[in-house]
Write a protein that binds this DNA or RNA. Sequence first.
DNA 1: ATTACTGTACTATATACCTAACACAGTAGT
DNA 2: ACTACTGTGTTAGGTATATAGTACAGTAAT
Lengths: 119, 119
Amino acid sequence: MLTYDNNQPLYKQVIADIKKRIINGDFSHNPQFPSTRELAIAYGINPNTTARVYRELELQQLCYSKKGVGTFLVNNGQLVNQLKKTMADKLLDSFLSNMSDLGFTKNEIIKKIEKGGKT
Amino acid sequence: MLTYDNNQPLYKQVIADIKKRIINGDFSHNPQFPSTRELAIAYGINPNTTARVYRELELQQLCYSKKGVGTFLVNNGQLVNQLKKTMADKLLDSFLSNMSDLGFTKNEIIKKIEKGGKT
DNA sequence: ATTACTGTACTATATACCTAACACAGTAGT
DNA sequence: ACTACTGTGTTAGGTATATAGTACAGTAAT
């Protein structure tokens, strides 16, 4: 489950988590998202917040909502790869920029990754 | 200068920036920080916010304030290296965790860094 | 003492975020 | 029609963030 980070709005953290689930293929067989109320219970947050999550995701054209029916992942074959690339690039840019500000060179960063991470 | 990120409180962004400046050696010759009012002008923010920045930095024992005099970097030789390591580790952990969630392996990440970044 | 800086504290105002508690409209199965 | 789900909208209250404006106390140089 999501461990919340107080430095960022809840709804944005949930959005990021949903995107990860999309990339992970959680909705490849069934494109229907949990209802706003279900999602609220699952994440332990308020239904108003999950409604906002779906509203934002719909603005980003990642899903569409039908009143009385549900919210569904858009049918777009390229979407998952695009999303994965976009999110990774954003993470990478931010990470490299911050590490550069701390005085690390690219080689030092790579060494640190080889040593440190478990993945 | 700092380009602000709406996803995080201003005062935390300024704190991170000051820490980078400490690591960068900006205060190695003169340990006195700009006054709260000067810093506010420099960053284009409110003096109350810069006062909060120094208050938090003092809580983290990175500086101390003398009423009527100013705010000064603590005299601690190990501090810069410790700070650099702490911040880098935090960045690295967060980055690797997020990239792992997106399905990237360590080797893929390293390749991406070798290709992408400019540093 | 006066002046001009410091840090610090306070009130007020505005906004974003989050929760709570509803209400209403649309859809589908019975 | 009834029931039980959907999405959606509204009002209210609480907290955190940031600004604006003002005030006061401590320090140092003149």
